[in-house]
């Protein structure tokens, strides 16, 4: 089973118990205007241009014969500053798993487990499920928007040890406005999660005037009841990567 990821982070300390390794899946059905991982939004590999390092030598515009450069119209193997990088790598689940297991071997007793993040890991459910099989019996955790069909959601969480799920906005219309989708599926999946025996954590990113309003937080509280809940402070500097991808950060200046 082949999937697309955009990063692997060793020693993730905020993504679940113990020293963990986090895999970032590429592609997400949501378009949260505050997203700080824009390279996780579209499923296809993308060219990232780190303009700050560019000296203007224009060597990347000289035609080359590398097959992987063709679709970008620029040579990615010539920049002395490494300004051009491709975000997104397609990889077979078994191969990825053996790469990932290296960190478990190194850390031994101090290893906590693996976390699937993104992007939206549930957007590649079959790839995720085969990766889960390969990585068992390690402690496995997901960070998800919860936006997927309930059948997939149920099938996946059943295999996991810890679920971190966002509830960003309680009002579906606002959810549609700021994330591109309504929250019906998410709330439905939340009830599946709540009724499962799995340990979980609900997260809400605190976006000024959008999610971080008294009304929204009270409404979320109403929905999740006594569920464990973490509110994440937001850093506007997170917008830096948009420019590298030629994308527009809708929160710019906010």
């Amino acid at each position: 089973m082949i999937g697309t990821i955009f990063d692997i982070k060793e020693m993730a300390v905020h993504d679940g118990p113990g020293i963990r390794t986090t895999v970032f899946f590429k592609g997400c059905p949501l378009r949260c205007i505050w997203c700080h991982n824009p390279e996780g939004l579209v499923a296809q590999p993308q060219l990232m241009f780190k303009e700050a390092r560019c000296t203007g030598c224009r060597r990347c515009f000289v035609q080359c014969n590398h097959p992987d450069c063709r679709k970008f119209g620029r040579c990615i193997h010539v920049c002395p500053q490494n300004c051009l990088e491709v975000a997104g790598r397609t990889v077979e689940a078994g191969k990825l798993a053996s790469e990932l297991k290296a960190s478990a071997d190194i850390l031994g007793d101090t290893f906590g487990g693996f976390t699937f993040s993104g992007g939206e890991p549930l957007a590649q459910p079959e790839f995720l499920l085969s990766l889960i099989e390969e990585l068992k019996p390690h402690h496995l955790c997901i960070e998800t928007s919860g936006y997927t069909d309930p059948d997939t959601f149920g099938r996946v969480i059943e295999k996991l040890d810890y679920i971190i799920m966002d509830i960003k906005l309680a009002d579906s219309e606002k959810h549609q406005k700021y994330t591109g989708v309504g929250n019906e599926l998410i709330l439905k999946n939340f009830s599946i999660l709540k009724n499962s025996s799995k340990p979980y954590l609900i997260r809400t990113p605190l976006i000024p005037d959008i999610t971080d309003t008294e009304e929204n937080l009270a409404a979320i509280k109403e929905i999740i009841g006594g569920s464990p809940w973490e509110k994440l402070p937001y850093n506007v500097a997170a917008g830096a990567k948009y420019k590298m991808l030629g994308m527009k950060f809708k929160m710019e200046g906010k």
Binding site: V13, H14, I19, T110
Partner: peptide, 12 residues
């Protein structure tokens, strides 16, 4: 939590 994990990395 982060502090404890860095400590564990040193231990490792």
């Amino acid at each position: 939590d982060g502090i404890e994990k860095v400590g564990l990395l040193v231990k490792n």
